[in-house]
Design a protein around this nucleic acid. Structure first.
Length: 565
RNA sequence: AGCCCGAUGGUGUAACGGUAGCACGAAAGAUUCUGAUUCUUUUAGUCUAGGUUCAAAUCCUAGUCGGGCUACCA
């Protein structure tokens, strides 16, 4: 399939430890120099930015080494999985810019897996255990004490074969029997203490329907699926590293294609959570609006928020791949996003907190159109016309009645530039009876049309504005961190991570005023509201009569930072 | 607790026995019709203790700290 463009680091990029292994294997002509990876999600939830790291790694390696990457759904637990997720996962991967070479489902291998189980039984390497869950658990032993062998451990091959086939044919209820690998109940690797291979589950599977009532466990299904697909490098996250001895054991005993497993550290980001379990808590607890809430680190949420695939890919390449379990600062992600949006987003003007300005020396009842540059970073984006008139709106915090010296914006008697328009001088602030400023009376200099003074005088500040008459109203949603703490794994004793939820993570601004070109903006196009940030029209709630914009990310703001000090 | 994995500026990473480098952040400055962008400069690091070696971030041993495993989840 056609490779997507890989992230923008080129040849100068250093190889991470996994790519080093792959490069070495190619060099040594292992598997005839063939490279084949896979991305193996369980279809039981939506993909998140952590999955993006794995996707970029697996698909990226395939592209870089001229290999292949499969998408394989690890659908071995019918009670948790659903086609809804199968579809959303594919959508998200494609959106990220990758295309799989082969699409597989572990459930397609159930018959082969069953046959291999029989082979292990015949080799006396697997047996049917008829103990209860509780008994099995108790016999497992502890980290310091060995486990005990099941009283069913030495059943004959024939009895095992018979029982296993009757398990398959549905003779038994859930939990009556399991199939176990016969390894070593005294092993220091707890995972090798006769791990379960199959359990009985009378449940309908989203793909195989009611064809099966026994389902393989992850450890028995995953490595064998890798082997069937002749995966050369099976890349997974760190928590599976204790499973590797078992992964290798099955492959060795079955004598099948020797896939190898390599583990890397999953992504952790500050101020957010990154697990399906916690996402479910957020959605079910109505802390967010759903899996695609723009505050969620799910790919669907990030897409709705206005993240671009390129930004995510660049981020993944910047953070690297190691076995160190770190915590990546969210600003790294946000900067990757700003860098990408800065190049591609067209500029528009929008006033989020409008303050009316009457330009007293501008002729009443008249208006004009001015030229504005769409993207100073990209000349090909061209220009557009923006209407200007006697009454405009400016941002409320662009005016101060008693401004400090370093405030470059509007104040009584001060002159600023209206972006792409004229110089404007504030003459008077009109207040209501409570002393709130409700309107500004200003004058403009007709000689400064376009934004430059013929006499060469300079102004320190340029502010954005919209025409009162021509602007359109919109709702704007601003987002902040989901959590108030950097690391939810680090909560004080006895505190649940949900106590750290930021109750101000969403603020909804109504009555915002946008320049009219935004009314028929192609909804999918990211835009920069000048001096405010990058925004995108909300894909779900925005309609012709009711514009809704999401703030993707703010611009860097060294002014407000200074104020804090 | 046993086993496994890990530890380099604030954060994320590179250096593969031979000059500790990069990015982000932070700080200062320049430019600027976005207090954005861009550019310049500065900042700050090898967990600890031993050992091997002419030479250790790198190899060895022990310790400390962090993570994982002890599901009929993946």
């Amino acid at each position: 399939m056609s490779p997507a463009p890989q992230s923008d680091d080129s040849e100068s990029a250093k190889l991470d430890f996994i790519r080093e292994i792959v490069a070495r294997d190619v060099q040594a002509n292992t598997h005839q120099g063939r490279v084949h990876t896979r991305f193996p999600p369980e279809p039981n939830g939506y993909l998140h930015i952590g999955h993006a790291k794995s996707i970029c790694l697996n698909f990226g390696i395939a592209q870089e080494f001229g290999g292949k990457c499969n998408l394989r759904f690890d659908d071995t637990n019918p009670t948790k999985e659903d086609v809804e997720y199968v579809e959303s996962i594919q959508e998200d991967i494609r959106w990220l810019g990758f295309e799989w070479d082969e699409l597989h489902f572990a459930s397609d291998y159930f018959e082969q897996l069953y046959e291999w189980s029989c082979e292990l039984i015949r080799k006396e390497l697997a047996y049917v255990d008829s103990q209860t869950l509780e008994e099995i658990r108790q016999q497992r032993g502890t980290a310091t004490e060995p486990g005990q062998e099941s009283r069913y451990r030495n059943r004959s091959v024939d009895e095992n074969l018979d029982l296993f086939s009757r398990m398959r044919s549905g003779e038994f209820a859930d939990g009556e029997h399991v199939l176990r690998a016969r390894i070593d109940m005294a092993s220091k690797h707890l995972i090798l203490r006769d791990p379960l291979m199959y359990r009985i589950r009378h449940a309908e599977h989203h793909r195989t329907g009611n064809q099966w009532c026994i389902y393989p466990m992850y450890d028995y299904a995953h490595g064998q699926s890798d082997a069937i697909e002749e995966i050369t490098h099976s890349i997974c996250t760190l928590e599976f590293d204790t499973h590797r001895p078992l992964y290798d054991w099955f492959i060795e005993k079955l004598g099948i294609f020797p896939s190898h497993q390599y583990e890397f550290a999953r992504l952790n980001l500050t101020y957010t959570v990154m697990s399906k379990r916690k996402f479910i808590d957020l959605v079910d607890g109505n802390y967010v609006d759903g899996w695609d809430d723009p505050r969620m680190p799910t790919l669907s949420g990030m897409r709705r928020r206005g993240y671009t695939p390129e930004a995510i890919r660049n981020f993944c390449s910047e953070i690297g791949v190691t076995k160190y379990n770190g915590l990546t600062d969210l600003v790294v992600l946000e900067n990757a996003l700003r860098a990408d949006l800065n190049k591609r987003a067209e500029r528009r003007m929008a006033v989020l907190d409008p303050l009316r300005v009457v330009i007293t020396n501008y002729p009443e009842g008249e208006s004009e159109e001015l030229d504005a540059v769409n993207n100073p970073e990209d000349e090909s984006a061209g220009t557009r016309k923006i209407p200007f008139g006697r009454e405009i709106f400016i941002e409320r915090d662009d005016f101060m009645e008693d401004p400090p010296k370093k405030f470059f914006r509007l104040g009584p008697g001060r002159e600023v530039r209206l972006r792409w328009a004229y110089f404007l001088t504030c003459q008077e602030a009109i207040k209501d009876e409570d002393g709130n400023i409700v309107e500004l009376r200003c004058t403009y200099d007709p000689e400064t049309k376009g934004g430059n003074a013929p006499d060469g005088r300079k102004v320190k500040g340029t502010i954005h504005w919209v025409s009162a008459e021509h602007s359109v109203e919109a709702e704007v949603r601003l987002y902040d961190h989901l959590l108030k703490v950097e690391n939810p794994a680090d909560m004080p004793e006895g505190q649940d991570w949900k106590e750290a939820l930021n109750e101000n993570s969403l603020s909804v601004l109504k009555g915002c005023r946008l320049e009219p070109s935004l009314a028929d903006n192609d909804g999918a196009m990211p835009v920069q509201f000048e001096r405010k940030g990058y925004f995108i029209q909300d894909a779900r709630d925005s309609a012709a009569g009711h514009l809704v914009f999401n703030r993707t990310v703010s611009l860097k703001d060294s002014w407000s930072k200074k104020g804090r000090r």
